[in-house]
Nucleic acid binder design. Structure first.
Lengths: 240, 240
DNA sequence: AAGTGGTCTAGACCACAGA
DNA sequence: CTGTGGTCTAGACCACTTG
């Protein structure tokens, strides 16, 4: 078994929703029927549907059936689904996004970073500042700390490409969950210099801690975004 | 059966994590043992653990065990976990939060609202503007649209108390998922007037659509927050 | 080799919605 | 009454980690 069956089934059903085979507002075949079609037990089908439910793609009602939900409506300009687990270049397109490395050093973590990344004072971290550009226009000023022990052999080439790809594909690490704090602040001198912001322009700031699936914190970062070029989008779910 | 067993078990385990019976970094008893303790099958235990995993409270690793994760670190000032499914008064305390109703009317939805709330032109909506105060200081300017057909008999008393409590407790409706878009903007005249913002002060803006568990959109709203008094917090998860 | 969590099955009973 | 999804069980096999 290469992949879990329920993941394959979820992917297949999602594809049919996307290509219009299963249309918005219409019921899906019932779980028993799907089970026969995919040649699995009903529980396996249900597990697939549970995941799609949590993603907000379908909803189920006992006694009634399972229905396809619509696409999510609010979208404007260059909004990207701000996903903590995908790098900016993968969100917005490798062609459009480029990076300029402003700082890349190794240091011992201060107390705040020790707390956020669950490190001892003696365990070094990378300290990285990058300016991210979208179609050569300044978009985001990122300041990132990562434990050296978890991300060995980071170098400038990787910083110019995608740290996330390196972590996933080369190091084979999986992100688990992320804690994010989004606020608005006034532009400081750095923002004026690198983001071409005017004095006191609004800046959209994101602070986040990202953990691996095994519970180890792998990143603490802040991202400062030009207010007119970026917003954050989340889908929250009330299911258990 | 009043409640599902797996929900009861999840609650029991969460309580033991919170009160320190199960400590951060330590392993939980294995699934077989928990199953015997709770007198259920292993699958039921696993279902409970899956939920706690998605909430970021524990992590599991095949071949190793299940471990308790730590509390989430970044917290500052009056931050509240910005939960789309709990009203402001329930997040920040009924004593601290008061409301001033600026507008409360019924009207036919324009095209944008029709799209967001999946309504016909002939289906009326409430149009509500409220100023929310925290310890009598202006915090948020909310502009909310809700379909009249889903929320009958809304009145000023409810607006001054909690719309969310009314929807949950009186109407017995459950929120399913929410789509949120967070951005930073410059203060406009409204913000200057009601939020005591200075001209061009940063404003943290939230737009959201909230759906019921049955997939019907029940709310489209925008919230404009003073940048120095509020930020939004989310926990995102990479599990299926 | 032993112990862990992950997946899957077949079958059962329940609660709920609609005709 | 029938069909739907929700829950639960007992048992089985797998992949992975550690000794």
């Amino acid at each position: 078994m290469v992949k879990a069956k329920y993941l394959e089934i979820a992917k297949a059903i999602e594809a049919k929703i996307m290509d219009g085979t299963f249309k918005k507002g219409n019921p899906l075949p019932d779980q028993q029927t799907l089970a026969k079609q995919f040649n699995v037990s009903r529980l396996t089908v249900k597990k697939a549907l549970d995941g799609l439910d949590r993603k907000g793609l379908i909803y189920k009602q006992s006694g009634l059936g399972t229905f396809v939900l619509g696409e999510i409506p609010i979208k404007e300009g260059i909004d990207a689904p701000a996903n903590a687990f995908i790098g900016l270049r993968n969100q917005m397109g490798k062609e459009q996004v480029s990076s300029k490395v402003i700082l890349f050093s190794i240091e011992f973590p201060n107390e705040k970073i020790q707390e956020y990344l669950d490190l001892k004072r003696s365990e070094p971290v990378y300290n990285i500042r990058r300016l991210r550009l979208y179609n050569n226009e300044p978009l985001t000023l990122e300041h990132t700390y990562m434990p050296v022990k978890l991300v060995p052999d980071l170098d400038q080439d990787i910083l110019l490409d995608s740290i996330y790809d390196y972590i996933h594909e080369k190091l084979n690490l999986q992100f688990g969950h992320a804690y994010r704090r989004i606020s608005a602040v006034k532009a400081d001198e750095y923002d004026e210099k690198y983001l071409d912001a005017k004095k006191d322009d609004p800046i959209l700031e994101l602070q986040q801690i990202v953990w691996l699936t095994n519970g180890q914190p792998i990143e603490y970062s802040t991202s400062k975004n030009r207010y007119d070029r970026r917003s954050y989008i989340t889908v929250e779910n009330n299911r258990f």
